[in-house]
Amino acid sequence: MAFDTPKLVTGEASVPETHTKEASPVPARATPRDPIALAQQKQINAAKLRKFADKVSTWLMPALTIAAFLLIWEVIANAFPGGLPAPSMVLMESQELIFNPFYDRGGVDKGLFWHVMTSLSRVGIGFGLAAIAGVLLGAFIGTVDLARKGLDPIFQVFRTVPPLAWLPISLAALREAEPSALFVIFITSIWPIVINTAVGVRNIPQDYLNVAKVLRLHPVEFFFQIMLPAATPHIFTGLRIGVGMSWLAIVASEMLLGGVGIGFFIWDQYNSSRMSDIIVALMWVGMVGFILDRLVAMLGQYVSRGTTAD
């Protein structure tokens, strides 16, 4: 939640209204000299000011840091010509790429929007499968202690394997680029989902388990009525890490696999030495990754509303 700004506790306008009515006998005729009314007016103003300052700083500070960043970049890039293009250069050289993400001239000559969509659809399939399999597997090893003892060491080793290290194996086994890319996403993002789900399932409070026992819920009922909702916060922690990792994995594996996709685009532009285009593409990658993370976080908040309240 690094982007949530803390909410200042402000007086709000309702406080003075109710207070004047109760505190002073003739509220409507309170003279400006009335010390209570004056003090209250001061408080309202201070609260309003704080609120305003808070709002402004939320938007102003990021804008300032971005501006400063661009400025420093511009200065350094101009000081060492021939290296990275300065922001002004990027703007000039990659105009079409920046302002028209939707063009499509056939083949791989497409706007960035289409490249990103292709990559996202791969993430959607690979990550979707990983989510389903991960939650089921996590629920299994969270419930069956023997399974956890047997499988946990393997998972702990597999989850440290970098995404790209899976690529040669999957290419050899699956023989085609598209399923290999999907497999790399799947195998990268499944571990945090499995491990977090298992932790969530193992931490279901004894009280809920007792309720299920007294009611004699059968396993399927227990899974949907108790286990899934109780483990939801943990599951979404896993999903959030998983979606981030699958975005890392897809960009990297597309660079090697070719075809369409934002990762391929970056590699392609590198081969034709178009640095400005790469920088624009990087911005897209960052923004899309950020949005993905926020989407999963928001979904998690919506789904798990109430689950932690006691």
Binding site: D207, Y208, V211, V214, L215, P229, T232, G306
Partner: peptide, 16 residues
């Protein structure tokens, strides 16, 4: 089993 229903000390209602 439900024929011996329990009211637990800390209510044990399902919060969701």
């Amino acid at each position: 089993g439900p024929e011996r229903a329990v009211v637990f000390q800390n209510h044990s209602l399902l919060p969701w």
